[in-house]
């Protein structure tokens, strides 16, 4: 439990550092961010992989994929 709290504090610290280092990016500077492979969501080609992983593993969610319903497998 103590280790988990330490990990959370560490993760929170890293996150705070990253967010405070944010710089404003103008629209014309977003050519790299707008690249099709920079998308933060799932790509359509990953759909089957995420489905079978949610069936074959106990964990699911927090990845934008389905977290229930639609199949007797989960």
């Amino acid at each position: 439990m103590t280790i988990q709290i330490h990990r959370l504090v560490l993760l929170g610290g890293i996150t705070a550092m990253l967010l405070t280092s944010c710089t404003t990016v103008k629209e014309y500077q977003k050519n790299r961010l707008n690249d099709g492979e920079m998308t933060l969501g799932n790509r359509k080609v990953e759909k089957t992989e995420q489905s079978f992983q949610s069936y074959r593993e106990g964990a699911s969610g927090a990845n934008g994929a389905k977290s229930g319903g639609g199949c007797g497998c989960n």
Binding site: T15, L18, L19, S21, C22, T23, V25, Q29, K30, R32, L33, M38, L40, S60, G61, A62, N63, G64, S67, G68, G69
Partner: peptide, 27 residues
């Protein structure tokens, strides 16, 4: 199944972006 998903996406600079995701799923 009932689920609530909250996410925050953030551009850090012109090369780097992040997303934090949290779900609560009740079955």
């Amino acid at each position: 199944t009932y689920s609530a998903s909250v996410s925050w996406s953030q551009i850090v600079n012109s090369r780097f972006q992040l997303m934090f995701l949290m779900d609560a799923i009740y079955q």
